[in-house]
Computed example of a mutant assay.
Amino acid sequence: MERKRLINLTEIAVMAGVGAVLSVFVTLRLWPQGGSVSLAMVPIVLVAYRRGWVAGVICGLLVGLFNLMTHPLIAHPVQVVLDYPLAYAALGLAGLFPVRGEAPGWTGTGRIAWGVTVAGLIRFLSHFVSGVVWFGAYAPEEFSPVLYSALYNLSYIIPDILVSILIVSLLAAKAPRLVKTG
């Protein structure tokens, strides 16, 4: 039992480190106020599928805290929680949709797509609320803060989700051990 826990913690730490590096070096920055397309979701989702949603949430939390330390945009303490640890921790919820399971008719790719999409949309909700409450003042006059936050955040969350689905599906097809429950 002790060995398995150590393996889980090591895997979470290593993948959080990979996610942190990917969020810094492999990025398409779209907006000056934050929001970018990166591969940081991929290691979080892999941990979530491989070790379960709790491990995925912890891994995401660590990546979010790293992003807070390396490139913060701080308007309010609650905004910090919404945009960094909570948003990235939400990605670990992809583990609630295991790749190998008992649901008939689901392929591994379908489960990956479903899990990454749901987790990504929960991440979007966290950024969306932060955007409406704390960054609505940046909205152009013709936009409501709600519409502005939705469009702003979807502009990078949707590509993030699509790229993550593609990469995790390819990894699962070529190296199924990366997503097996273990």
Rank of each mutant, 00 (worst) to 15 (best):
G120S: 08
T27R: 14
F25R: 05
H76N: 13
A113S: 07
V42C: 13
L73N: 13
V21S: 03
L28F: 14
I58L: 13
G92D: 07
P72A: 08
V63G: 05
I44N: 15
P72R: 04
P104W: 02
A55F: 06
I44A: 15
Y49F: 15
L61A: 15
V78I: 14
L30A: 07
E11G: 07
V57H: 11
V99G: 05
Y49I: 10
L91Y: 04
Y49L: 13
T10N: 09
G64E: 14
A75F: 15
L68P: 07
V26G: 10
G35W: 03
V116L: 06
L68F: 14
V80F: 05
V80C: 04
V14A: 08
L86G: 05
G64V: 13
Y88F: 15
L61F: 15
L68H: 08
E11H: 01
A55P: 06
G120Y: 11
L39N: 12
M41E: 14
W114F: 09
L82A: 01
V47C: 07
P32G: 11
L28I: 15
A103N: 00
G17N: 00
L96M: 05
A55D: 10
I122T: 12
W106N: 01
A55R: 06
D83K: 03
L96N: 03
S23M: 06
R100A: 11
V18L: 13
V45F: 14
T117I: 00
A13I: 01
G110D: 01
L28E: 12
P77N: 05
T117M: 01
H76E: 12
H76Q: 03
G60A: 15
A87D: 09
E11C: 00
I122N: 11
R111T: 00
P72D: 00
V116H: 09
L61H: 13
L46N: 14
E102V: 01
F25N: 05
A20T: 09
G60C: 15
G115N: 02
L46A: 14
G34E: 03
L46I: 15
R100M: 06
P32T: 10
A20E: 00
Y84E: 01
G92V: 04
P85S: 07
P77Y: 10
A48E: 10
A87E: 11
M41Q: 14
Q33A: 09
G115Y: 00
T107A: 04
G56R: 10
P72C: 05
A87I: 08
S36Q: 09
N67W: 05
L22V: 07
I122Q: 13
F66E: 05
A103W: 02
G110P: 02
T27D: 02
A90Q: 02
T117Y: 00
A94P: 06
G34F: 02
G115F: 02
G92T: 08
